[in-house]
Write a protein that binds this DNA or RNA. Structure first.
Length: 488
RNA sequence: GGUCCUGUGGCCGAGUGGCUAGGCUGAGCUCUGCAAAAGCUCCUACAGCGGUUCGAAUCCGCUCGGGACCUCCA
């Protein structure tokens, strides 16, 4: 594919990507609610959109990537009453709500950084955009798609769906939607079963609240994304993304709010990333099967046999297409770790190969093939497979068992570097090449002693050195022209 | 109950109506003092049952299994 195709949830097909105002692209991704630690499932979504962001940049687009931080509101349960998540957590940890926000925002940023995701262009917070949300709610009220009850404002889904298609994103018919929702509780302030809160009246003890035309309160969960995407990307923009779990409720309601406010379809391409599962079941905090990234990097989780490098985790995620579920297991991580190592070995070997006479025409197509993979709805698994397909040849050439022309070598170096580093965002594990001078001189001495022992066929000594170093995490490998070492 | 997705070799995972993805694991060989690494070779699958087709794992139907959403969740 020479053009970029994106699977659009709205149409349920792959569509040619045509930005509204090229070369500019506006992309909004729903970020985390920072009331506790992000788990690996959350991370997967952001790694997926990082891949998408990187490839759009790589393709020459000028992308404004907006990813919000939800730091206010967000009630637990479906009743639009009770405490918000931040107030609850603040009570639990005996902190200010904004301390909770700060703590988990920093934690989120740390994890994003070690996973080598690029920071978004703008990372707006809900609390920083109360005014914009209030303005939007006012507009929706004026348009007649919302109503006020006791200081709270609710969106009138029934009224909205008499004019617009409310269930478009999930392909649901109006009747189905209204039939298949649960009963309203007797004392509920909402008129309709599907109605949702735009603004919620605060109780006196609510810790985070703001003044509004309807009294003190806080925003409903969905309105922040509508308000902030409109502010930074406009009333209509190119891409809106998030996890699939947000599709039915959050994104459906976002579309409703934006249309009620601005009439037009707010987003051209809706993109949804699939879930991370453990033993086939979705990872979620409530199910108690959530992994913290730190548990992976340190290897302290019960399901893991060892620690895994963040780049291994990233590679593991990218080996599955973003719209497929990804099942998490120790074996799968192990396979990714070895595979990634194999790719890096090939990349490193490239710099050592001397150009030969034989030219492989297949390598001329490598860049085209990599592009084709990514143009097909960001198919990173196929991209990775394409990269793997040449590792055997590269390794053979490095051992003098095959030849690669100068052109071949140039192409391979260029393509591997571009796609491994720029597109996939895999950083070479620098740890393995930068050692202290002290360690280097000690190792040089040891290797010299060992080489001498080998020359004199004192294999007990040479094997003793290798075996004991290995037990300490240093691996020695013998080659035709000497020995090398690295830290495992 | 409704909406929808999915079922690929020991494991993880792409994909197309006809030409064995790829990775990991396992076995054999080459190289090697031995290891390791690397190369080569082998193990060749598409849940089941029907149908459409010259031909289907790929399209359609049914059956069985798994999952998501419909309620806070990336």
């Amino acid at each position: 594919m020479s053009q970029l195709y994106i699977y659009n949830t709205l149409s349920r097909t792959k569509e040619v990507f045509a930005p509204i105002n090229p070369p500019f692209v506006g992309m909004y991704v729903c970020g985390p609610t920072v009331y506790n630690d992000v788990h690996l499932g959350n991370c997967r979504t952001f790694v997926s959109f990082d891949l998408i962001y990187r490839y759009l940049l790589f393709s020459g687009y000028k992308v404004r990537y907006v990813r919000n931080i939800t730091d206010a509101g967000h009630l637990e349960g479906d009743r639009d009453e009770g405490d918000d998540k931040f107030t609850k957590r603040a009570r639990l940890e005996q902190l200010e709500p904004m301390e909770i926000v700060q703590k988990y925002t920093l934690g989120f940023h740390d994890v994003m950084k070690v996973l080598n995701t690029l920071p978004p262009s703008i990372e707006p917070t809900a609390t920083g955009h109360i005014c914009e949300q209030l303005e939007m709610i006012k507009t929706i009220l004026e348009a007649g798609y919302a109503y006020i009850v006791n200081g709270s404002v609710y969106f009138d889904v029934e009224r909205f769906s008499s004019v617009f298609d409310y269930g478009a994103l999930t392909n649901r018919k109006r009747e189905e939607l209204f039939e298949n929702t649960r009963e309203l509780h007797g004392q509920d302030e909402k008129r309709g079963r599907l109605d949702f809160a735009l603004w919620i009246k605060a109780k006196p003890e609510t810790l985070m609240q703001w003044p509004s035309p309807w009294g003190w309160g806080f925003p409903g969960w969905h309105i922040e994304c509508s308000a902030m995407s409109k502010k930074y990307l406009g009333e209509t923009f190119d891409i809106h993304g998030g996890g699939m779990d947000l599709q039915a409720t959050h994104h459906t309601n976002e579309i409703a709010q934006s249309k009620a406010c601005c009439k037009d379809e707010p987003v051209k391409y809706w993109m949804h990333t699939n879930m991370l599962t453990v033993n086939g079941t979705r990872m979620s905090k409530s199910a108690g099967n959530g992994f913290l990234p730190q548990e992976l990097f340190s290897g302290t989780h019960a399901l893991l046999e060892k620690a895994y490098h963040p780049m291994t985790v990233r590679f593991f995620m990218l080996q599955t297409h973003y719209r497929s579920t990804l099942d998490f297991s120790n074996d799968a991580l192990q396979a990714s770790e070895k595979g990634l190592q194999r790719l890096w070995n090939a990349v490193n070997a490239l710099s050592k190969i001397k150009p030969g006479k034989q030219h492989h025409n297949s390598i001329d197509q490598l860049d085209t093939m990599c592009k084709a993979a990514m143009n097909d709805d960001f198919n990173s698994p196929v991209l990775i497979a394409t990269l793997f397909e040449h590792t055997a040849l590269i390794n053979a050439a490095a051992e003098g068992k095959a030849e690669l022309s100068q052109d071949n070598l140039n192409t391979l170096k260029h393509v591997y570097n571009q796609y491994m580093v720029e597109v996939l965002g895999l950083t070479p594990q620098a740890l393995k090449t930068e050692y202290s001078r002290a360690l280097q001189s000690a190792m040089n001495l040891l290797l010299q002693i060992r080489t001498d022992a080998k020359t004199q066929r004192h294999f007990e000594l040479s094997d003793h050195i290798r075996k004991n170093l290995e037990a300490g995490g240093i691996r020695i490998q013998d080659h035709k022209d000497g020995s090398t070492w690295d830290v495992m």
